[in-house]
Amino acid sequence: MTLTLAQARMIIDTALAQPRGDNAPALAVVVLDAGAHPVAFAREDGASLFRFDIAKAKATGALGMGADTRVIAGRAANNPAFFQSVVAVTGGQLALSPGGVLIRELEGAVIGAVGISGDTGDCDEACAIAGILAAGLIHGDVK
């Protein structure tokens, strides 16, 4: 199964519709296929300059390391030299903050990832998961 544009748009639309409280910062959302190619992305009005790049690094990093960025960030805390090296050798294609979530088909195979940046890592991740579920897919380490 491949990730469709309709699924990617559902992920984005749902993620951006998630309640985030008054005066919540603007988000950038990117959905990548399993090869880290962009399927769709959106940037809310007012999102700061680097939000798209950070969102893409979260999604790409999740794909490249085979885990959600929350898990990767936990591993990095215990082995910072290695993960600093990974960030360097990949040209910054890994952001060590929650908000990069693997997208799996119902059988469990990874078909892409979503990256969100703009709010707290916890909020970015929650918005990503809501979008994935709305698209009828599963996320992260759930198999």
Score class of each variant (00 low, 15 high):
A95S: 13
A26Y: 07
S97Y: 11
D124T: 05
V101D: 02
S117V: 04
A77V: 03
V142S: 10
P25S: 13
A26D: 01
R70I: 00
A28L: 05
G61D: 11
A26M: 09
A109K: 10
M65P: 03
L27W: 00
H139K: 12
Q93E: 14
L94D: 06
G46H: 07
I138W: 06
A42D: 15
T90P: 01
T4G: 09
D45R: 13
A59Q: 07
G100W: 08
P98R: 02
P98L: 06
D22T: 13
P25V: 00
M10A: 15
L63H: 02
A62T: 08
A55P: 01
D22W: 04
V31W: 03
A134F: 11
A128S: 04
F41V: 05
S97L: 15
A135D: 01
D13N: 12
V114D: 00
L27I: 07
P80Q: 13
C127R: 00
L106E: 03
M10W: 02
I103E: 04
K143P: 11
G91T: 06
A113F: 08
L106F: 04
H139W: 15
K58V: 04
D22V: 09
E107T: 10
D53S: 11
A135V: 02
D119C: 06
Q93G: 10
A77F: 03
K56M: 13
P98M: 10
T4L: 11
G92F: 01
L94M: 13
G92Y: 05
R20P: 00
R70E: 12
L106P: 01
T4F: 01
G74R: 10
A109P: 06
N79K: 07
I11A: 01
L137H: 09
A17V: 09
T14C: 03
L27K: 03
G121A: 12
S85R: 10
A130K: 14
T120Y: 05
G99S: 02
L96Q: 11
G112K: 05
V142L: 13
L137D: 02
S85M: 10
G108K: 02
L5G: 05
V142Q: 07
A40W: 00
G35I: 02
E107G: 13
G92T: 12
V101K: 09
P25E: 08
N78P: 03
A130W: 09
L133T: 13
G74Y: 01
A34M: 06
E105F: 03
S97T: 14
M1W: 12
A109V: 09
G92K: 05
H139C: 13
C127V: 00
L49P: 08
Q18A: 14
